[in-house]
Design a protein around this nucleic acid. Structure first.
Ligand code: MN
Ligand code: MN
Ligand code: ZN
Ligand code: ZN
Lengths: 154, 154
DNA sequence: GTCTAGTTGATAATGGTTATCATTACCGGC
DNA sequence: GCCGGTAATGATAACCATTATCAACTAGAC
């Protein structure tokens, strides 16, 4: 093996963070849950329960779809995963990094593709709103709608 | 009748705008569609198909739920209505004003209540992103998550 | 090893939305 | 004013992502 390291989109830090948080919560460990954790840690952006399930089955892991949903719900309750609604009626999830670092999504209204972006000015503007409204802001979602490069050309 | 006018949250301008746009499109007029248009024009913020249907039935209008969905889809295709996803699996809709003036929503994660807010700095930040990414931005959604006043007290 | 309760996974149920299709009624032509 | 075609309606079935159910399994404490 060469010495080069592959920069994983989602730092391996999340995996340890999530595992520790679940351990603190109590309860048992299970292979099904570990498998979903592994799949999440390996993904660069959001994925649906079905996509995660397919990926696991593809690598020979016979995890039930119900366990995928249950694990995602559990992780979401503990703030370990971010739920992304792109508007197509399918919930997608991606790891929520411990430092709060995150990105948002641009959704193509033609082909449904999702790409990530991050913007400090946007975050600052959202943060400033929290001080102005009568609402305790704990999170936020932003989605851009429009045409991706491929669909603009087509 | 007194001379005072009631400031409708959604200016009556939308009603005329939407009616004209549908007329330009062609097709027939129908009482069911007009009823949904009327209900939308009267609402200050987003409402679900079911809520619109219930409101119409409440005032004695026997519109089928299917026609409510169809009208909302038609209006959405023509950009006359904005779809709001609060994350509870129910699509909500509100009039899209011709000038592009709009607001966003703060959703309480405890009681599900939705309140509107507008912020120029936020809009400016989002607009600036459009010039930076390889994506033709035609619209955007923003949702704040957290606790409303009532749920903070509870 | 045994026991117990958390977890699993196949499957049924749920619920918002969409498709179906026979019926209705808008509207241009006469 | 009456047709005729056809867009639109509305009751209902189908769809599909998600959730609930429950018997079987198993992690892990003792
Ligand atoms: Mn952000
Ligand atoms: Mn905006
Ligand atoms: Zn596209
Ligand atoms: Zn609340």
């Amino acid at each position: 093996m060469a010495a080069h390291t592959h920069d994983h989109p989602t730092p391996g830090a999340w995996s340890a963070h999530a595992t520790e948080a679940l351990a603190r919560r109590g309860g048992r460990r299970s292979t099904a849950r570990d498998a979903v954790l592994g799949a999440l840690a390996a993904q660069d952006c959001c994925a649906s329960a079905q996509e995660i399930h397919d990926r696991l089955r593809g690598q020979g892991n016979r995890v039930g779809i119900a366990s995928v949903y249950r694990t995602l719900e559990l992780l979401h309750e503990h703030g370990l995963v971010t739920r992304v609604d792109t508007g197509d009626g399918v919930a997608r999830f991606e790891p929520a990094l411990p430092g709060g670092e995150h990105h948002h999504h641009a959704v193509c209204t033609r082909c449904g593709s999702v790409e990530a972006f991050a913007d400090d000015a946007l975050e600052a503007a959202i943060h400033a709103i929290g001080d102005r409204v009568d609402f305790e802001v704990t999170g936020h979602d932003v989605a851009l709608r429009g045409r991706c490069r491929a669909c603009r050309a087509a």
